[in-house]
Design a protein around this nucleic acid. Sequence first.
RNA 1: GGUCUCAUCGUCUAAUGGUUAGGACACCAGGUUUUCAUCCUGGCAAUCCGGGUUCAAUUCCCGGUGAGAUCACCA
Length: 481
Amino acid sequence: MNSDQLPIRTRFAPSPTGFMHVGGVRTALFAWLIAQKNNGTFILRIEDTDKSREVEGSIAQIEKSLKWLGINWTEGINIGGPYTPYLQSERLDIYKTWAQKLVESGRAYADPYTQAELEQFRNDAIANKKAFLYRDHRPENPSVWDGTMPLRFKSDPKSYKWTDAVMGELSTGPEAIDDFVLIKTDGYPTYNFCHIVDDMLMQITHVLRSQEFISSTPKFLNLYEAMDIQRPVLATLPFVMAIDGKKKLGKRDGAKDILEYAAEGYLPEAMMNFLATLGWNDGTEQELFAPSELIEKFSLERVQKSPARFDEKRLLWMNGQWIRKLSLDDLYARSTNFWSDAANTAGDDAKKLVLSLVQDRLKTLSDIPLLTSYFFDEPTAEWSMIEDNKQLNNIPRDEITSMLEAAKTALSNANYDADSLQQTLNTLLETTGQKPGILFSLVRLAVSWAPFSPALNETLATLGHDKVQSRLQVAINISKE
RNA sequence: GGUCUCAUCGUCUAAUGGUUAGGACACCAGGUUUUCAUCCUGGCAAUCCGGGUUCAAUUCCCGGUGAGAUCACCA
């Protein structure tokens, strides 16, 4: 807790067991924000000590996810730093050294029992309605640890009170402390042991982790004492819950890969904003925070203690807000992978112009094809759209035809800029004596055959004279059938 | 079962020993010469329950209830 004067160093230390979901990313984000805010260092360490759970390609996936969000590490995997290596499987000698120290100080011993014997102890405890504690079965004269048996921590059960930077005052009784395994028989350390060693050696000042670790914290406190090391600031983050479930968001419960959101056209700014404000706020009524504002304003003290549901509707709204904040050039640069094939045959200027019309209508970048298709592809006329339209469904066919013809004539001589076209359309309203709700609806459908589109004058201007003329002619022909 | 944590609108949250308990998302209704979106206006909607302390409790205390976590040679 006396880490205030030290340079702030935080870490994110995931296991390579698959993709990253929003819960994990939020933990990384908060740790990163603390480091950024304090001009500290954010470290990426990989905890690959369970070979059976390892998933091929996970590390690359984790790196890609963090990079997409803009969470950059300046020390760690693939970068190096003063405490290399940052892959735990390459640090086995280090853990062995520290384990040996515990053996020598009498705080670790070889576990003589088989799995079956352990199982028996456990079952007996359950049968007697007692909590199972390994330390009730400590061997009297443990043999020398040669690596063929698990190495266990010889705990010193006691009550603890400690302060968590998020949760506040926490306490437990001695029952929470047991002799846990430090080194497994495969030679790898357990998380419980190696993260303590690494955090110490890597000079980590703030340890942020998710709520499931709160009940193992007393074990860590006990080990810190046994190893005589000053513990870092501990911060426990509440869970991110699935929106419909009551369980923490996890891969089994349908949590999505963060990169799926990228593929669906969410902006990293929106995702970061959303995750940061899921369980944190700055005390004002501000909802939208740019990354730089988050860095400036974030604090662990204002992190919520209770779990939060992951509300994708709020994320969607936020994404729309962030899309609208982008300059057209920036938006265009980010839209590269989202255009339809037909759109991609058009030039940059054409696409950019269309994009400017739909920017306010986008919730995600993947809405682009749906909102812009008729600018690049000839739409298929669906007369039912006129028959089902509540403004148009009572109008006789011949009147529809004559309106379309009048529009075609008026527009054939128009100047194709938005202002002139609005003039033309207004004049057309007068000459036909129609209400805008009728005439504009009809023309809009005839040139787009889309359920929605930008303002009519802008749509026409963007389509251009030739497309407008030919599409109106198609509509006229159908109206006469 | 043991241990531990949490509890304000449907959701994310603000606030305070005295407020009409505020904002945002979602939803509903109206407005902006068509539609959809944006934008604007309005509406709906919350302090888990019971005791105590107090002139006053959503806020402090205790007890319930509910929810969650953990009890691995996983992290």
